[in-house]
């Protein structure tokens, strides 16, 4: 069993609980034990605009905290995953900057004892395609579109989770879970998630266009791995629809939730109730019929 520190970052800690629940439930299926480490803060990713220096500091202090516990990090948020990886690599390549950061760490009573590995749930699932196939309880049987999210793909000077222009891992994971999934042109477009700070309408436009593309192409649902996109495309889908002047009604769901469901985990414990878009499962039936089905399943 591999132990990893669960690094929830800002959005999982404060609002995207469904993602955190599904990560916590699913990872043990792949022989991963998640450890809660006190002391973590924001990764710095959302505030690069204000200060890259601060972003590096925030990232490196989180790495140092995990290192103190002797643990590598699981970072389910794409923005966190990039920010933590970036700080590690940049500081590694820039001894002058690293020295300055070490001084700051000392002021907080922390020390730099070398980098730790930063892992994304996408990578874990992809390493375990056989485990998913061998433990398939509910083959998904739907046609699903992937939204990768910018920060696990770019930029490739850093180690990223998949190929920058032609990623394959999400589709392969979904196929292992019994779904149909093929690449489509808009899948690596940006969701506008980081616009929420100062360009809310543009954020909703970008996210709306992502949902619209998947809906237009006839997919049954859109699967994502990043809380920044999910909170817009799922949580605020109707605002997105209004902003772009289209009718949107597409299930948007986390990859960890889909895979968890396929492997027989309880939808409630995977946080299905916290998704606000149309449900991926049971959505075509009347609500009553869906409820009945759930009761039978329970």
């Amino acid at each position: 069993m591999r132990k990893l520190a669960l690094y929830p970052g800002c959005l999982l800690s404060t609002s995207q609980y469904g993602y955190e629940m599904s990560v916590r439930k699913l990872m043990p299926k792949f022989d991963i034990e998640l450890v809660d480490v006190p002391g973590f803060s924001c990764c710095g990713g959302p505030v690069r605009h204000l200060s890259m220096n601060m972003t590096y500091y925030l990232a490196i202090r989180n790495l140092a905290i995990a290192k103190k516990e002797g643990l590598d990090i699981l970072a389910p948020c794409n923005v966190c995953h990039l920010s933590l990886t970036e700080a590690k690599m940049k500081l590694f390549g820039s001894p002058d900057l690293l020295e300055k950061m070490k001084e700051k760490l000392m002021m907080e009573g922390l020390e730099w004892d070398g980098p730790v590995e930063v892992v994304h749930p996408l990578e874990i699932m992809h390493e375990n395609l056989d485990v998913i196939k061998d433990n398939l309880v509910n083959p998904i049987g739907k046609k699903l579109a992937c939204h990768y999210g910018c920060h696990i793909l770019r930029y490739s000077d850093l180690e990223r989770c998949d190929h920058t222009e032609t990623p394959v891992k999400m589709e392969e994971i979904l196929r292992a879970a019994g779904a149909e999934s093929e690449p489509y042109p808009e899948r690596i477009n940006c969701c506008g998630g980081l616009y929420v700070a100062n360009q809310r309408d543009s954020a909703l436009t970008k996210a709306g266009q992502k949902v619209e593309a998947a809906q237009f192409r006839g997919y049954d649902g859109l699967v994502d791995t990043c809380p920044w996109g999910h909170r817009l495309m799922d949580g605020q889908q109707q605002e997105c629809a209004q902003t772009i002047g289209e009718k949107l009604d597409l299930p948007v769901i986390y990859l960890t939730q889909v895979v968890g469901y396929a492997m027989g985990l309880d939808p409630k414990e995977l946080g299905f109730d916290l998704n606000l878009s149309k449900p991926l499962f049971g959505g075509d039936e009347s609500e009553e019929a869906a409820d009945e089905k759930e009761e039978v399943a329970e």
Binding site: C10, S13, C42, F272, L274
Partner: peptide
């Protein structure tokens, strides 16, 4: 961030 470590405070989540 400076007050509590994250960009926002813990929010209640809406359910379906």
């Amino acid at each position: 961030i400076m007050g509590m470590g994250m960009i926002m405070s813990e929010q209640p989540a809406l359910t379906k």
